[in-house]
Structures are given as structure tokens and as C-alpha cells.
Design a protein around this nucleic acid. Structure first.
Lengths: 191, 191
DNA sequence: GAATAAGCGGACGCCGCCGTCCGCTTAGCT
DNA sequence: AGCTAAGCGGACGGCGGCGTCCGCTTATTC
């Protein structure tokens, strides 16, 4: 694993690209054969690098989640916590919408350290963002980071059941509206 | 099909019961063998009545959707449209939560007339309920009946990805909050 | 350019699942 | 009770997918 022959490295990259694309387009149920076909290699080559289909998915999903965690990191710098939270939600939603397997994969592959750690990272940062947004009064108090992740994923999945290609935007909008502090009759206004 | 021998009818009922239970517990991917095992019959018996696994699922899903449509019918009588709408959402959510295959099945099996018709019925009634709730000012205007169905189902599915057994209630609560008319700066109040 | 080991990929075996088929059983009728 | 056809269920074949293995190819080193 340390040093890889030039052709091997090239094939590995092809496989990773093809897998990312195939999972995104077809969901978590694409066959290894399909991925190998897209990569232009035999499926033996795929199975040599990744002893299991799940381990391949874990590599893809882990990378995506890390990207998302980085985005969260940058958004933590923002002064407007409410807007930062919304922006992260939109970012995640776009990602989930583009990659049909990401949501399934992130739960299915959390036995793999790459995915588990990336999720941990992301959840920590999201949790901090949530606390900031709560303090700013733009977010209800009874949701945690995993809740938000799950609900974004669910909104995207819901949209795939319709024929409106922009449904996911409406659903995320609705979700964000629902995530605001519920109006109370006797509002205990902060400040 | 018209007249069924007594043992055949008994076995058919067993199969339907077992299938309902198995789909509910295990999701749409239970094997026919598992269903047959639960019913105490050979899997040949299952396949004779239902030439396809999907046709069996369609029978189950169709029945569930019809029940739901009936509930919607009764709720249409209510004077408080907002409360009626919410109650239907909760009813559907409970159903989806109890039956893991219902949501998947209702889209997978809409090639079957039983499911297609039941969905049509349900959607019509839900649409009427939505219009009433809109007029009552308790529901945003940019959602249709299929939207609501898809969002409920997906929210439930999302909740199964968490370890909190009551997560689905919170998610539905949030969804309902999000479905209220969004607060506008210059509200054009009716009446 | 020769030696060598890393890498390749298709053939193979295994598994679970689905749907069919046919010899045996049994309900229903007389 | 006897007859008959409806019904039963397990055996069977086929399919798709996954992971392994081994004979061949090719990059790399000297």
C-alpha cells in the first residue's frame, strides 16, 4: 500500500472516480461490475484494492463527509450564526441531492473508521454551529446535529419520489422553516 | 379466483397476515421464503396466489392506503381544517412508522391498479383537506398532496437512522411547524 | 535487455432469491 | 365411501452479484 506502481495508482484513481460517479448517479446498490466497467478495469482490480463493496463505499462517503466538515469549519467563523447554519444546511442538501448514495452510505458504512471519524468531526462542528444559532435565537432547542443530518437527507429522499426536479429546494425550505423556534403565545424574548 | 377452497382461503389469509407483518418489520426486502415461513406454508403457495413479489406487496400496500384514505374521509367532516390536517399527518406518520415497507412499496408498486387507485383516492382527499387548511390560514400554499406524503414518509425513514425511538415524533412536529404559512414581513392578512 | 515482482482481469465458485413445475394430498360433491 | 379436481410444497433451474484465484502482462530495477 505504501508505494504503488504507476499503473496501479492510475487505476486506483480511475476506480475512485468511477465509484464516486456511479454511487452518485445510481445509489448504493450499483454493482461492482458497473463501477469496474465505468472505470475501464476488470472487477478483480476493484476487489483487490477494496476487499468489500462497503469498504469502497466507505472511501467515497468518507471523502464527501470530510469536505462537508471543512465547509462547516469555515462557516463557524461567520458572525451571523443563523445564516451560517442555513448555509451549511443548503450545502449539505446540495451534496445529498447530487449523490444519491451519500445518505444511505453514511449510516451503512459507519463501521469503517474513515466514515465514523468524518461523521464525528462533522457532527462536532455542526453541534457547535447549532449552539451558536440557538443562542442567536434562530433555531429551536430540541434538535441535535444527527437530527439535522437525518432530516436533510430525508428531505432530499422525499424529493426523489416526486417528478418535480426542484422539489428538494422547497422541502429544504420547509425544513428550515420548521427548525426555527416555534412561536409561543407568551414568548420569553431574549434581550 | 372466484370460489376458493376452504383451505386455500385459510392459507391466503395466513399469507396476507404474515406478509403484512413481515413487510412491516423487515421492510420491502424480506424474502418470499421468510413470508412463507411465517405463514407456515411452502413458498410455492405464496407464489401461486401472487405471481410476483411486487404483486403481493401491492396487495398489502393497497389495503393500508385504503385505510388511510378512509381516515382522510372522516377527517374531511371536521370543521377545524387545520387540526384535521395535522391529525391526518400524525395518523399517516404512525402508519409509516409501524410499517417499514409502506413508503417504499407505495412508490414501487404504483404500476398495480390497486395501489395506483388507492393513492389516487388518498391524494384527492388529502388535496381537499389541504385546500381547506389553506383557507383556514394554517398551511403554506406551496405544497401539494404528494409533497406531504413524500415528506412524511421520508421523515419517518430518517428517524430509523437514529437510535432515539421517539425521533420520528420530533421530526413530524418539525415538519408540521415548517408547513405553517411562513411569517412575512408585510403579511397580507385575509379578512 | 534481462530479471523480477507487482499488477491485471477474466474465469470460477458460492450464495440468496425468485418463479415454475409436478407428484402427492385433501376438500368438496354425490 | 369414492371420485375428482383444486391445492400444496419442495425440488429445481436461472439469475445477478460478490469475492477469490491464477496464468498472463508490464512497470521497474540493475
Amino acid at each position: 500500500m505504501a508505494v504503488l506502481r504507476a499503473d496501479a495508482r492510475r487505476n486506483l484513481n480511475r476506480v475512485l472516480d468511477a465509484a464516486g460517479e456511479a454511487f452518485a448517479e445510481c445509489g448504493a446498490d450499483v454493482s461492482i461490475d458497473e463501477i469496474a466497467r465505468r472505470a475501464g478495469v476488470g472487477h478483480g482490480t476493484v476487489c483487490r484494492r477494496f476487499p468489500t463493496k462497503d469498504s469502497l463505499m466507505a472511501a467515497i462517503v468518507g471523502a464527501r463527509l470530510e469536505e462537508l466538515a471543512e465547509a462547516a469549519d469555515q462557516l463557524l467563523e461567520r458572525s451571523d450564526a443563523g445564516a451560517a447554519f442555513e448555509e451549511l444546511v443548503w450545502h449539505a442538501a446540495e451534496l445529498f441531492n447530487r449523490d444519491r448514495a451519500l445518505f444511505d452510505g453514511s449510516s451503512r458504512c459507519d463501521g469503517f473508521s474513515e466514515v465514523a471519524e468524518a461523521k464525528q468531526q462533522l457532527n462536532d462542528k455542526l453541534e457547535r454551529l447549532i449552539r451558536k444559532a440557538r443562542r442567536a435565537g434562530t433555531l429551536r432547542r430540541d434538535v441535535s446535529a444527527p437530527d439535522v443530518g437525518a432530516m436533510i437527507g430525508s428531505a432530499i429522499q422525499a424529493a426523489t419520489h416526486t417528478d418535480d426536479p426542484d422539489a428538494w429546494r422547497r422541502y429544504v425550505r420547509i425544513l428550515l422553516d420548521g427548525l426555527r423556534p416555534p412561536p409561543r403565545k407568551t414568548t420569553t424574548q431574549r434581550r
